[in-house]
Simulated scan of single mutants.
Amino acid sequence: MENFEEFQNRFDDITFSLSRDDIMELNKLDNGPLNNVISRINKHCYGVTVVDGNSQINIEMFYVTNDNELQGYIINLILDEKYYFHLLMRFATFLAEQFEDVNAISAFNTFQIKLRGFLEKLDFFTTTSLELKPYLGQNAVMVSTGSRGIKNIILIEHADFYRDFFNKNYKLERIKNSEYVYLMVNSDSGYIKIGTSINPHYREKTLHSQEPKIFLIAQWKCNKHVEKQLHEKFKDKRIRGEWFNLQLKDLKNIEEFMSNYN
């Protein structure tokens, strides 16, 4: 990022905590999900509001939870502003750091999908980066049916993001009969599997046949005791078996912990 200080100042200027009174005001504009959180029908919700100004489109994105108490955070963005992608990702990561039920990538995608619906109502023709992915490099031409043009909504694939995060080490050539500690992600839930195998890619295929949304994202040549160390390290984040609810900071911790392998 060319100017991190500028980015951080912008993030600090547009991100706010929500008091109970703030949440009640937001509820007057909400169509139900927020009220369900207030009344404890649901544990949490994501929300988006859009104001179409003369020269810019202002967006409020918020997250509210009512687990132990009613609380939340909101970010005020301008569509197409500088650092938009990074600001929203930083907000999603911030939420994941505050609330254990939030996965940063899932939160980012949820906000973007909700935004897409508003932009369609404002007569933009919208598509997503995932929808366009099959056409990359094919010189495809897109024609807009919206009077205000085309907006491409960036969405993040869990597997692609995490593979890049670990510098694509999932592609490392396998040494026959060697044991590997691997990470896999369920792209629906965002949960991470910490396991061992002499062939992680084959293990991915066997799991993929049962749950098509499971992908290998990292592997290291090391003994099974390392897997046990990682399981112990993140035991408080275990969902079931070898599956864990890990955040980006946890994956950074794993990256540093595994730096002596491979």
Rank of each mutant, 00 (worst) to 15 (best):
I105Y: 10
F99H: 15
N169C: 11
V37Y: 06
I113K: 00
A92N: 08
R20C: 06
I192H: 05
M184D: 03
M61W: 12
P212T: 10
S259D: 15
I74P: 09
N253T: 09
E211K: 00
I254K: 11
N245E: 15
F4N: 05
Y170N: 12
P200C: 01
S144E: 02
V64Q: 03
I175L: 15
H201L: 09
E173C: 06
S197P: 06
E256M: 13
T145I: 06
L246T: 13
L183A: 03
K193L: 10
V50H: 07
M184W: 01
L119Q: 09
R240Q: 13
N253R: 00
L95C: 14
L77A: 08
C222E: 02
G117L: 11
T128F: 01
C222D: 01
R163I: 01
F62C: 04
F118R: 01
A104C: 09
V48C: 09
N177K: 03
K205Y: 04
D188L: 06
H44W: 13
H225R: 09
H225V: 08
M89Y: 15
E179S: 14
L246K: 10
F215M: 04
Y202A: 12
G47T: 08
I75H: 01
D13N: 13
A92L: 10
M142Y: 05
S55A: 04
E157A: 10
K168M: 11
E97W: 04
F108G: 10
M142D: 10
F4M: 04
K205G: 10
L29Y: 00
T145D: 15
D52G: 03
N66T: 07
R148F: 07
N253L: 12
K193Q: 13
A140N: 14
K114T: 06
D236T: 12
L207D: 02
R40V: 06
N35I: 01
R10Y: 02
I214L: 05
N36Y: 01
D250Q: 02
R163K: 15
Y84P: 08
A104V: 05
S39K: 13
E69H: 12
I74Q: 05
D13H: 04
P200H: 04
L122I: 11
L18F: 06
K43N: 11
H225W: 03
I74H: 02
L77M: 15
H208I: 02
S129P: 12
I154P: 02
N167P: 06
F166Q: 01
T49K: 00
G241T: 11
I75N: 00
M1G: 14
V143P: 00
F166D: 01
K205M: 10
N223Q: 10
M1L: 01
Y135P: 05
F165W: 01
N3A: 07
L248M: 14
Y63F: 05
N35T: 08
F215S: 09
T196A: 08
F85T: 14
A96V: 08
D164E: 14
L87E: 15
I154F: 00
L130M: 05
D67E: 15
F99S: 06
R148W: 02
S189N: 03
A104I: 10
Q247L: 05
E227D: 13
